[in-house]
Design a protein around this nucleic acid. Structure first.
Length: 825
RNA sequence: GCCCCGGUAUCCCAACCGGUAGAGGAAGCGGUCUCAAACACCGUCCAGUGUGGGUUCGAAUCCCACCCGGGGCACCA
C-alpha cells in the first residue's frame, strides 16, 4: 500500500481518515469469505437484510454497527466469517411510489439499493460484497417459485376459501401474523374480514415441531422471542366431545380444555358466523332473529370485536344438544364470543368454571352448576372458578381432582366412542397470496379442464411483466390479472387456453430462505448447493430487530423444517443464536417525520464521522435496549476516538519491540483489557467492552505522560491492542492507528493478541475485613493467600480488635483473598 | 385481566457463584495550558441500589408483597 499513512498528522481528522482507507479496503477486501484456499474455520454471522425504502437511517446504523462488532470480532479470532448482505426488495413501498409518482418499481428499487449499498460501504460494514442478493431479481425469485411448487406437490401449498383478513388500505389480504391488534401491521388500518379463495402454506403441520424444537434454542435465543413464539403457536391439550343434536344426523364435536367439567355444561354455543350456526338456525322460529344478529356481528369491526369487557350477545336457536354423559338436553345459542375458526367453532358452556360462559349465562339468565368445589358460588360472586378442586355433581368424577378427572372422563368418553383426547393450536396456516404487483408471481396456471396446474420447472422463473402500462392502483384484484398477454397461456398439461394465477407471494416467503442463498447467490442450478450449505449453516449468529420475533423467524423456522424433510438441509433450526437489537428512539418515542423528532443519519455522519456514530450506538447501553438519541453523545465518542488515535502518534518504539521488556503494570492492563473485552463481546455486552477499551486508553495516556514513557515497548503493545480492539467498532480510526504504529493494512485481519495468563494475575488484592458485616479494615494481601493466614492477619488488625472491643468471637467467615467477616459472640 | 423484562449518582450505564456499590461515558464544578477561548490534560462532586418485609455472618444480587416503566398475549373454550 502506498497510501499516505498520515504519520505526520497531529490532529484527528475523521474526514481525511475516512477518505484514506475506503479505497484501500476496496482493494484489500479483508472480509471476502469465499476463497477456496482459505482454511480458517468457518463462522456465519448474519444481519437481517434491509428493505430498500430509501437511504439508510438511524435504525440501520445501530443494527449494522452491532452485527459488525460480532462479525469483526470473529475475524480477529481467526475465523473465516461469512457476513453477507442483500436486499429484501419486493414489497409495497416500491409499488406505492410507482402509483404516487409514476416511477417504475424496478427502477425505484434498484436506485434505492444502490444508494443503501454505497452508504453501507461508507459505514464500513464488514460485508462480503461478493455475496449480495436482491429478492426481486428473477434469478432469486425463481427459487421462491420452485419452493412453492415443491410444497404444492407435497400438499403443503394449497388453495382454500376462507374468511380472511383484508386491509382496505393496502387492498390486499394479510396473514394472521400481519394483523396487530386488529390493525394492518404495515399501515395501521383496521382490518376487515372477507371471504376469499387464497393460497396457504401448511405451517400448522409443523406446529408441534416449531414448538418442540425450541428447546434447541433455549439459552441461545432471547427468552422473550421464544415465549412470543410459544404464545403464537398456542398449543393446548384437552378433549373433543361429541354432542348429539336433536333433529340432526351427525353429532357436533366441541373442543374443550376442561373435559372434566362436562357435567357442568348447561348450554351450548356455536360461533355466529360459522356454517354450523346458519344450518342450525335454518327452519327454526329463531331464523329471522339469527339472520339479524349475524348481520350485526358482521358489521362489528375486528377492533371492536377484540375489545375486552364487551357485553355478551347472542341468539337462542331454539334447538337442543344432548350432553353425552348425563343425557341432559341443553339449549344451543349462537354468539360471537365463540370463534368460528378455532377448535370446531362450537363449545360446551360451563358457566361455573369459565368466565366467558359465566358472563353469557348471567346476561341471558342461564343456569350455573358448580362441578368443581372451590368454596364459592360463581353464580353469586360473578367470578368463575378455574382452580383445581374436588369434583361434585359429576357422577363418576365425584371426589376426583382436576387431573384425575380429566383422565377419567377421557377414558369414559373413549369407551363410549363419544370423545377423545385432542390438541388444538392458535396457529393458522400461512396465507401467502397477495393482490399486488411487486412480488413473486405464483407459478400456477388455472385450466378450465385440469384445474390448478403447476408451471413446469423448465419454464421458471415466471417473470413479472413490466409495470409499464399496468394499472397498479389497488383495487382488490391483482394488477397481474389485467396483463392479459402475460396472464393467458396454454395449459401445460392439456394445451387448452388457461390463465396464470394473478397473485404474488407474501414477501415473507422471500426472507424465509435467503440465508441459504448467500452460500452462492448466483447459483443457476439450484436454490442452493446442499454441500455449501453444509459448510456454512446453520447461521451461527443472527442479528436483527425484535419486530420479527414472530413473523420472519417463525416462517424461516418453518421453511427450514420443510427443507429438512425434503432432504435438502441436515439441520432443523436455521439460526443457532439470535441477538435482538433495540430501536433508536428520540426523547422517549420512535423517530418519525410526523413527530418531527427525526434525526438524519447522514447529518450525524457528516458532523461526527462514521466511527463516532458507530461507537455511540455500541456504547449507549446493552444492545437489546432501545437507544435514546437524546442520551448519547456522538461528540463524546469522537473525543474518545481522538484520544485513542493520539496514542498511536506518541509511541516511539519500533514495530516488533519485545513487550516482555516493557512495564509490567502497563502490560497487565493491556492483557486484562484484551481478556475482559473478548468476554464482553462474546456475551453481547458491547458497551462493557468499549468501557474496557476506554480504561486501557486512560492507562496508556498516563503511562506516556507520567509513567514509563512513550518508548516503553509495553506502551506499544497496549496501543496496538487498542487499535485491534477498536477495529470492531471504529474501523477507520483503528486502521489509521495501525498505520501510524508502522503496520500494513488491514488491522481488521491483525488477529486478536494472545492473552498471557500470568499477566492476568494481580500482585495484590484488597481484602475487606468486616466486623458484624460492617467494613472495618482493608488489607493488601497476596491473591493466593491461605485461609488460616488471612484469618490471623485479619484478627490481628488494630481496627478489627478495636471494633470487637473485647467482645468474643462467634465465627469468622474467611473467603480468601477478598473478604473476612468476623461475627462477634 | 394474564405472562415476561426492567427500576443503581443529574443522565446513559457497570458490578462474575450473594462478599469493598462504580468500570466507562455524558453533564456539572475546579485547575493546568492560552493574551483569551476552543481543544487537550489533570482533578473533583454525586447514589446505598423503586417501596415494605423475609432468608443470610453478609443482599443491588435470592424469596414474598406492592409501586412505577416497557413489552407480549388477550373472548383460543
Amino acid at each position: 500500500m502506498t497510501a499516505n499513512t498520515g504519520a505526520e498528522e497531529t490532529r484527528y481528522d475523521f474526514p481525511t481518515i475516512q477518505e484514506r482507507w475506503l479505497p484501500v479496503w476496496d482493494e484489500l477486501a479483508p472480509f471476502r469469505s469465499g476463497i477456496p484456499s482459505d482454511d480458517r474455520p468457518k463462522k456465519y454471522v448474519l444481519d437481517m437484510f434491509p428493505y430498500p425504502s430509501g437511504d439508510l437511517h438511524m435504525g440501520h446504523a445501530e443494527a449494522y454497527a452491532l452485527g459488525d462488532v460480532i462479525a469483526r470480532y470473529w475475524v480477529q479470532r481467526g475465523f473465516n466469517v461469512m457476513h453477507p448482505i442483500g436486499w429484501d426488495a419486493f414489497g409495497l413501498p416500491a409499488e406505492n411510489a410507482a402509483i404516487r409518482r409514476g416511477e417504475d418499481p424496478v427502477r425505484w428499487t434498484y436506485d434505492n439499493i444502490a444508494q443503501q449499498k454505497a452508504s453501507m460501504r461508507r459505514y464500513a460494514c464488514s460485508f462480503d460484497w461478493d455475496r449480495v442478493l436482491n429478492t426481486c431479481d428473477p434469478e432469486y425469485y425463481r427459487w421462491n417459485q420452485w419452493f412453492f411448487l415443491q410444497m404444492f406437490q407435497r400438499g403443503l401449498a394449497y388453495r382454500k376459501a376462507s374468511n380472511v383478513n383484508w386491509c382496505p388500505q393496502c387492498q390486499t389480504v394479510l396473514a394472521n401474523e400481519q394483523v396487530v391488534a386488529g390493525q394492518c401491521e404495515r399501515c395501521d388500518t383496521n382490518v376487515t374480514k372477507k371471504k376469499l379463495t387464497q393460497w396457504y402454506l401448511k405451517i400448522t403441520d409443523y406446529a408441534d415441531r416449531l414448538l418442540d424444537d425450541m428447546t434447541q434454542l433455549e439459552g441461545k435465543w432471547p427468552e422473550k422471542v421464544l415465549l412470543m413464539q410459544r404464545n403464537w403457536i398456542g398449543r393446548s391439550t384437552g378433549a373433543e366431545v361429541d354432542f348429539e343434536i336433536e333433529g340432526r344426523d351427525e353429532p357436533v364435536t366441541v373442543y374443550t380444555t376442561r373435559p372434566d367439567t362436562l357435567y357442568g355444561a348447561t348450554f351450548f354455543v356455536v360461533a355466529a358466523d360459522s356454517d354450523l350456526a346458519a344450518e342450525l338456525a335454518n327452519g327454526t322460529d329463531a331464523e329471522a332473529e339469527f339472520e339479524q344478529y349475524l348481520e350485526q356481528v358482521k358489521q362489528t369491526s375486528e377492533m371492536d370485536r377484540l375489545a375486552t369487557d364487551r357485553e355478551k350477545t347472542g341468539v337462542f336457536l331454539q334447538r337442543y344438544a344432548t350432553n353425552p354423559v348425563n343425557g341432559e338436553q341443553i339449549p344451543i345459542w349462537a354468539s360471537d364470543y365463540v370463534l368460528a375458526d378455532y377448535g370446531t367453532g362450537a363449545i360446551m358452556a360451563v358457566p361455573a368454571h369459565d368466565q366467558r360462559d359465566l358472563d353469557f349465562a348471567r346476561t341471558f339468565d342461564l343456569p350455573v352448576r358448580v362441578v368443581v368445589d372451590a368454596g364459592e358460588d360463581p353464580a353469586v360472586t360473578g367470578e368463575a372458578t378455574a382452580d383445581d378442586g374436588l369434583h361434585v355433581n359429576s357422577g363418576p368424577l365425584d371426589g376426583l381432582n382436576k387431573d384425575d378427572a380429566i383422565a377419567k372422563i377421557i377414558e369414559i368418553l373413549a369407551e363410549r366412542g363419544t370423545g377423545k383426547e385432542a390438541v388444538n393450536y392458535r396457529l393458522r396456516d400461512w396465507l401467502i397470496s397477495r393482490q399486488r404487483y411487486w412480488g413473486t408471481p405464483i407459478p400456477i396456471i388455472h385450466c378450465p379442464a385440469c384445474g390448478e396446474v403447476p408451471v413446469p420447472g423448465d419454464q421458471l422463473p415466471v417473470e413479472l411483466p413490466p409495470a409499464e402500462g399496468l394499472d397498479l392502483k389497488p383495487k382488490g384484484a391483482s394488477p397481474l390479472g389485467a396483463a392479459t398477454e402475460w396472464a393467458s397461456v396454454e395449459c401445460p398439461s392439456c394445451g387448452q387456453q388457461a390463465t396464470r394465477d394473478p397473485d404474488t407471494m407474501d414477501t415473507f416467503v422471500d426472507s424465509s430462505w435467503y440465508y441459504l442463498r448467500y452460500v452462492d447467490p448466483h447459483d443457476e442450478n439450484a436454490a442452493f448447493d446442499p454441500a455449501k450449505v453444509r459448510e456454512w449453516l446453520p447461521v451461527d449468529q443472527y442479528v436483527g430487530g425484535v419486530t420479527h420475533a414472530i413473523l420472519h423467524l417463525l416462517y424461516s423456522r418453518f421453511f427450514t423444517k420443510v427443507l429438512h424433510d425434503m432432504g435438502l438441509v441436515d439441520f432443523t433450526e436455521p439460526f443457532t443464536r439470535l441477538l435482538n437489537q433495540g430501536m433508536v428512539i428520540m426523547e422517549g418515542s420512535a423517530m418519525s417525520k410526523s413527530r418531527g423528532n427525526l434525526v438524519r443519519l447522514s447529518d450525524e455522519l457528516a458532523e461526527h464521522g462514521v466511527d463516532a456514530i458507530r461507537l455511540s450506538m455500541v456504547f449507549s447501553g446493552p444492545p437489546e435496549d432501545d437507544v435514546d438519541w437524546a442520551d448519547v453523545s456522538p461528540a463524546g465518542s469522537a473525543k474518545f476516538l481522538a484520544r485513542a488515535w493520539r496514542l498511536s502518534g506518541d509511541v516511539t518504539s519500533d514495530p516488533g519491540a519485545d513487550p516482555a521488556a516493557g512495564d509490567i503494570s502497563v502490560r497487565k492492563a493491556t492483557h486484562r483489557a484484551l481478556h475482559d473485552a473478548a468476554q464482553a463481546v462474546e456475551t453481547f455486552r458491547f458497551n462493557v467492552a468499549v468501557a474496557r477499551f476506554m480504561e486501557l486508553v486512560n492507562v496508556l495516556r498516563k503511562a506516556i505522560d507520567s509513567g514509563p514513557g512513550p518508548a516503553d515497548p509495553a506502551v506499544r503493545e497496549g496501543a496496538e491492542a487498542v487499535a485491534i480492539m477498536l477495529s470492531l467498532v471504529a474501523p477507520y480510526t483503528a486502521e489509521d492507528m495501525w498505520a501510524r504504529l508502522g503496520h500494513q493494512p488491514s488491522v481488521a485481519r491483525a488477529g486478536w493478541p494472545q492473552v498471557e495468563e500470568e499477566l492476568l494475575v494481580e500482585d495484590a488484592v484488597t481484602c475487606v475485613v468486616q466486623v458484624a458485616g460492617k467494613v472495618k479494615a482493608r488489607l493488601e494481601v497476596a491473591p493466593g493467600i491461605g485461609e488460616d493466614e488471612l484469618r490471623e492477619l485479619a484478627l490481628a488488625d488494630e481496627a478489627v480488635v478495636a471494633a470487637l472491643g473485647g467482645a468474643g468471637i462467634r465465627t469468622v467467615i474467611v473467603r480468601p483473598p477478598k473478604l473476612v467477616n468476623v461475627v462477634p459472640g
